[in-house]
Design a protein around this nucleic acid. Structure first.
Lengths: 380, 380
DNA sequence: CTGTTAGCGCCTTCAC
DNA sequence: GTGAAGGCGCTAACAG
């Protein structure tokens, strides 16, 4: 009667015994078949199959002081943008040995710190974290983490290691300029709860309007001080947007400034709400009122009228983050610490004052114009 | 010169030495403080802090033949419903020691099998898998998995262990009946690619219409044989829906049967597309045409007109799955193998022929009626 | 290319 | 309530 406390499943030693080789040879054959001669590899394969052997990753991770888990920290699971980032990450992982462990920080820096500490206990193979506004403790953990760290969805001069994203400020500024160019003059900014990236967008919006000499603080539902935003309405605690929220917030802006003739929305969901509100008020978009969103989700193109938006390359960001991670794990040098994936200004009917407001059977047709900020990879 | 191959971080032995106790006492103090006397516990706490000790979860998992990873298999990351399920799962996990590892099967049973095999290598603490249509190999793995297994988002008489979900057939049937009740007679079924749950919904739709004696196969864009669906359009490979897809598919149905007076959509995103198409065609919803969706996502209530939908309790499903898992891990008995969380038929303006088609400033007002199939928990 | 030896860090077992 | 001994399954290190 042995005192083994195994769960009965075959181990690498069993495979080795059956194949008539050493355990380490089995180990090598499993991890990198090229390290083992054809003959032994074949014997081992047969033994593995016969025994139904399954490697124990916990043992592997312990012995090699390195797991195959990639920790991913996102601030939200409900927002479509992060779902797209995750899709890119999964697509980048493909059928490699790497596994994803997602932590949901809910835009809470303390929670992020806690999740990071938890992740580190697994000795992750790599880390992908959203944004650049980690707290000091998190930042320290990332810097001392014994693995590649990729920050995503924003830009910074001072990334922990590598950052892949785009400038929210520039993107918002470009879209606001477009609204100005087509003739809108009293352009509002519609936003619910503001995270650090939203603030970047707000500042881009403000800058564009100030440069045109038409900035009016009453047209944003954020307070004048762009740092400490005092939001109105009953939505100030909600960290995700809904179309209902868009309807209420735009109504609020109209109450304050009835002459508002367009809105730039912090995200597409709010823009959809704004459109519904215009429809309910029988306002013609874009003639009476212009609407632009941010992210260019699916529904923007299909809406009636089709809506303008800033296309962001979420999939690319997630995908490229994983590719960079894998490169680093493979020991390839990576000198490009800051990667700007850019954005596109997609101009559609909702901001095209010259568009006929009659019918738009062909909303699925190409965008009216597409102004690229830089070449971007395949985004789907 | 030692030949240690540690990464230099303190171990439980270091803590034990500093605290002047045995290693196992430290281990116990960390896992369940009540197992250790107050005095030693305090000493240990101090030593832990002084050393900045962090447990190595890989070692723990190896020694205990059980990790703290909960494997979750979902067919899609992009669809909102699964984002909601995941949110429920994360909320159910809270600050426990459990970690989530999500696998994205992309509605591919082989991929599901592969991911399951991968997950099992981690000796997971538990598994949560979507649906009931696993292939034989997956089913076998689930049955032999040495941990609790919860299936979600559907119902079955024969779950692996426990299942938490609702009847897609009944839900669709109830909504179709509602459409019949308010007077629609030529009711279409709008769907893109069909998964097994979509098929359940289709069968419920068909049954309701057959019972009313008004089923017409030309009104679904699925072929007559409900098992092997031959979809039209260019969308038949897309496993997610878009509003653009909704617009194209409904147009296709109209081409085939111009007298169609309502659609029941397989999901809300298609319903949104249908609404946009109606708007583009200047059709009055609900008077000229009725639209109902499935899931009751945020935008259904905010739409103009507000749209009817079947509210499903995705958050609850995810949350309760984790709670059940935790109970089982705590050794509490769980005799309820099949849990039906039900659904609600939410009737709004888009199917209310008596509604005034003028304005609907108060789309955010309570639904016209809410028909519950059973009491449901807090869903947000 | 292959094997031997020993260690990864924690936990189970069993004795005290 | 506490501790000593040894195993969990795999792989780094070095030799051959």
């Amino acid at each position: 009667m042995s005192k083994r406390r195994t769960d009965g499943r075959p181990t690498i030693a069993d495979v080795a015994a059956l194949a008539g080789v050493g355990a380490i040879t089995v180990s090598r054959a499993l991890r990198d078949p090229s390290l083992v001669s054809d003959m032994l590899r074949e014997k081992i394969d047969i033994a593995v199959r016969e025994l139904g052997y399954v490697p124990n990753l916990n043992a592997r991770a312990l012995a090699s002081t390195r797991s195959d888990v990639v920790g991913v920290l996102v601030p939200s699971l409900t927002q479509h943008i992060f779902a797209d980032v995750l899709r890119g990450i999964y697509d980048g992982i493909g059928h490699t040995r790497l596994h994803i462990q997602v932590g949901n920080t809910r835009y809470d820096l303390d929670e992020e710190e806690r999740l990071l500490a938890e992740l580190l206990r697994h000795k992750p193979a790599g880390l992908i974290v959203s944004g650049i506004d980690q707290n000091a403790a998190s930042r320290r953990m990332l810097e001392k983490a014994n693995c590649p760290v990729i920050q995503i969805m924003d830009l910074s001069d001072n990334p922990v290691n590598k950052i892949i994203g785009f400038s929210h400020h520039n993107a918002a500024k470009a879209m606001t300029r477009h609204l100005i160019e087509v003739g809108y003059r009293r352009i509002g900014f519609l936003s619910g709860w503001m995270n650090s990236r939203s603030k970047g967008r707000l500042s881009g919006y403000v800058e564009a309007l100030e440069e045109a000499g038409i900035f009016d603080p009453r047209l944003t539902n954020a307070a004048g001080d762009l740092g400490a935003l005092a939001l109105r309405g009953s939505w100030d605690k909600h960290q995700y947007s809904t179309p209902a929220m868009g309807r209420e917030l735009i109504s609020e802006l109209w109450n304050r400034e009835p002459r508002m003739d367009a809105v730039f929305c912090n995200n597409d969901v709010l823009a959809l709400g704004a459109l519904f509100e215009c429809q309910a008020r029988d306002l013609s978009v874009p003639n009476d009122f212009g609407i632009a969103g941010f992210n260019d989700e699916d529904f923007m193109e299909a809406a009636s009228p089709a809506m303008s938006s800033v296309r962001t390359h979420r999939w690319t960001v997630g995908h490229d983050a994983v590719i960079a991670l894998r490169r680093q794990l493979d020991g390839e040098p990576d000198d490009e610490r800051i990667v700007d994936v850019g954005f596109d200004i997609v101009k559609r009917a909702s901001t095209d004052r010259r568009a006929q407001p009659l019918r738009d059977d062909d909303a699925a047709a190409p965008a009216v114009a597409l102004q690229q900020t830089r070449a971007a990879g395949d985004d789907r």
